[in-house]
C-alpha cells in the first residue's frame, strides 16, 4: 500500500490514540523508572551505611571483648605506676621505708637517667607505645641472706612500678671471720642493678 492510498481519516483516531498511549506509556515508565532508580539509590546508600555501621558494630564488639579482657589488667598496671610517668619519688620513699623497717647497716641507691627501650611488640592502630628503662644501682649491707629476700619481697609488693634485677653481686665481707651478730655491721655486701620499666602511650592527634 502506498502512502497515497492511505485514507487517514479512517485511521487517524487509532493512530492518535496509539501515539498518545505510547507517549503516556513512555512517560509513565520513565517516571516510575526514575522513582525506582531514586528509591534504589536511596536503598543502596542506606544499605552501604548499614554495612558500614554493621562493620563498625562488629569491630566494636571485638573491641569490647578486647576491652573487657584487658581493661582490668590495664587499670591495675596504671594504678601500680607501670603505665605513665616514672615514679622516682615513690621508689626513693619505698627504699627509705624498707630501711626504716629493716635497719640495714648500708642502703645506698643511685638512679641513672631514663633511656628508651626498644620494643618488638606490635603497635596499636592509632597510638604509639613507648617503653622506658631507668637503671638503679642498689648497694646493700645486710646481716644475712634473709634480708635480701625480705627486701626483694617488699619491693615487689609495694613498688610503684615494674622492676627487673638485671645483675647482682653478693660478697661475704670477711671470708675467714665468723659471722658477726652486730646489727650495725654487715656480713654480706650486695650490689644490685635494677631496671625500672615504665610504659607511656603517645596518643594520636585525633584521640587527643
Amino acid at each position: 500500500m502506498k502512502p497515497d492510498d492511505v485514507e487517514w481519516d479512517l485511521v487517524q483516531w487509532s493512530l492518535l490514540i496509539a501515539v498518545l498511549c505510547a507517549v503516556l506509556g513512555f512517560a509513565a515508565v520513565s517516571f516510575s523508572g526514575g522513582m525506582l532508580e531514586e528509591a534504589y539509590n536511596g536503598y543502596q546508600r542506606h544499605r552501604n551505611q548499614l554495612n558500614q555501621v554493621a562493620r563498625d558494630y562488629r569491630a566494636a564488639q571485638d573491641d569490647r571483648v578486647l576491652y573487657e579482657q584487658y581493661v582490668q589488667r590495664f587499670a591495675e598496671l596504671q594504678a601500680r605506676g607501670v603505665i605513665g610517668e616514672e615514679q622516682r619519688l615513690a621508689w626513693v620513699e619505698l627504699l627509705r621505708e624498707i630501711n626504716d623497717q629493716l635497719k640495714l647497716p648500708v642502703l645506698r641507691y643511685e638512679i641513672h637517667p631514663r633511656q628508651s627501650l626498644p620494643i618488638d611488640n606490635p603497635q596499636p592502630r592509632d597510638e604509639k607505645l613507648l617503653a622506658y628503662e631507668t637503671s638503679m644501682t642498689l648497694s646493700l649491707g645486710v646481716l644475712h641472706e634473709g634480708d635480701l629476700f625480705t627486701i626483694e619481697q617488699l619491693l615487689r609488693e609495694r613498688a610503684q612500678g615494674l622492676f627487673e634485677t638485671r645483675g647482682c653481686e653478693i660478697v661475704r665481707t670477711e671470708r675467714s671471720a665468723t659471722v658477726q651478730f652486730n646489727p650495725r655491721r654487715a656480713n654480706l655486701e650486695t650490689h644490685c642493678q635494677l631496671s625500672w620499666y615504665t610504659v607511656q602511650i603517645e596518643r594520636s592527634a585525633e584521640s587527643r
Binding site: 578486647l66 576491652y67 584487658y70 589488667r73 611488640n121 596499636p124 602511650i201
Partner: peptide, 15 residues
C-alpha cells in the same frame, strides 16, 4: 581511659 581497646591490649601485652 580514653584509649581504644587495641592500645589497651598492646600496652598490657608489652607490660
Amino acid at each position: 581511659f580514653n584509649l581504644p581497646p587495641d592500645a589497651i591490649k598492646s600496652t598490657v601485652k608489652l607490660v
